[in-house]
């Protein structure tokens, strides 16, 4: 009996040894962790991309939702996973805000292997259609005349939207009352009801509200006007250096074989090229993005450093 077990163990080990070789990769299903609950834009994108990557690599890509604690549980799980390319994560730029704010049990830069960027897009500074604020100049003027006269709705303390607003205030010399909500949807509802006056919004629910005239867009957070929204000025015109572009990207645990990383990088980059994926991104006001793993790594390092500086200046501290 014991001999049998030993033989079995040896056989299984052989199997793994074979699988670790990159030219055979992938030889079994790939687990794509999503650090959010099912539903919502990141989950939707992950499911569509999983299908495309499956066609490309010939192995099923299984989306696993591990929401909770702003994604920390999922980040941890991926860092602790075997770096064989069978456990990867599709996350958002919230990874960098969390890395800047919390004392994590792992190093957010050294303990991961960046794979590729998937898309990027600005946050949209949005007000209610009935608001007296008509444009960016108006907005800054009103805030300068009466500091704290406007409430800003954030989808959570220390979210990218919250951080981005702090940075805007710091760079433009203005201040707003930050009111945290549990989700993007609740922020939009509060904006519609007039409970808050301004949001740095994103997400698929936003676009139809702008086109139907319920909400008004004032500016974009990207350093230059966004190609699909040429009429909106960048906030950097009034708050120099406060440009911010949110992203989605794929990474895995540290120490993944370069050949596996290259294969995944290509598979995701190709998936992003397909027209229906691009159409999906645009509902969220995002543009497809491709990058080398190194470029993506630099984006992560840059964003974390930038948010740390903002948090320090705004005196934001958690944990």
């Amino acid at each position: 009996m014991r001999k049998m077990t030993k033989i079995l163990v040896a056989l299984v080990m052989c199997l793994f040894a074979v699988q670790a070789r990159a030219d055979d990769y992938p030889s079994r299903p790939i687990r794509l962790v999503v650090p959010f609950d099912a539903g919502g834009s990141v989950d939707t994108i992950a499911r569509v991309l999983a299908e495309k990557v499956r066609q490309e690599l010939g192995q099923p890509v299984i989306v696993e939702n591990r929401g909770g604690a702003g994604g920390i549980i999922a980040f941890q799980e991926v860092v602790n996973a075997k770096p064989d390319g069978y456990t990867i994560i599709l996350g958002a730029s919230s990874y960098t805000t969390i890395a800047a704010l919390y004392n994590l049990s792992f190093d957010p830069v050294k303990d991961i292997t960046p794979i590729t960027l998937i898309n990027h897009g600005p946050l949209i500074i949005t007000v209610n259609a009935k608001s007296p604020v008509k444009n960016l100049a108006n907005f800054v003027q009103a805030l300068k005349a009466n500091p704290h006269s406007m409430s800003f709705g954030a989808p959570g303390v220390g979210s990218a939207s919250d951080f981005s607003a702090y940075r805007f205030e710091q760079a433009s010399g203005t201040s707003m009352v930050h009111v945290p909500y549990k989700s993007d949807g609740l922020v939009l509802e509060a904006l519609l009801s007039g409970e808050i006056q301004v949001a740095f919004a994103s997400g698929p629910a936003l676009v139809p509200m702008l086109t139907s005239g319920m909400l008004r867009a004032v500016a974009v957070t990207s350093p230059t006007p966004w190609p699909t929204l040429p009429n909106l000025p960048s906030i950097t015109t009034v708050a120099p250096g406060s440009g911010y572009v949110a992203w989605h990207g794929v990474w895995g645990p540290a120490g993944m074989p370069p050949a596996v990383v290259a294969k995944l990088n290509k598979a995701f980059d190709d998936a992003v090229e397909s027209p229906d994926v691009q159409k999906l991104f645009r509902t969220d006001l995002r543009e497809p993005a491709t990058s080398t793993p190194q470029e993506f790594g630099q984006v992560i390092v840059h964003d974390i450093a930038q948010w740390k500086a903002v948090a320090k200046q705004a005196n934001l501290k958690l944990h």
């Binding site: 609950d37 099912a38 539903g39 919502g40 834009s41 989950d43 939707t44 499911r47 569509v48 949807g185 939009l188 509802e189 519609l192 698929p204 629910a205 676009v207 139809p208 509200m209 086109t211 139907s212 319920m214 229906d276 159409k279 999906l280 509902t283």
Partner: peptide
Amino acid sequence: LGIPGDATMALLLGALVIQGITPGPML
């Protein structure tokens, strides 16, 4: 409104978005 009330509703809207239909006030 296109704003989901809970996670299940979010998935329903997600299914529409994948189909290229934007849920919202004009749906």
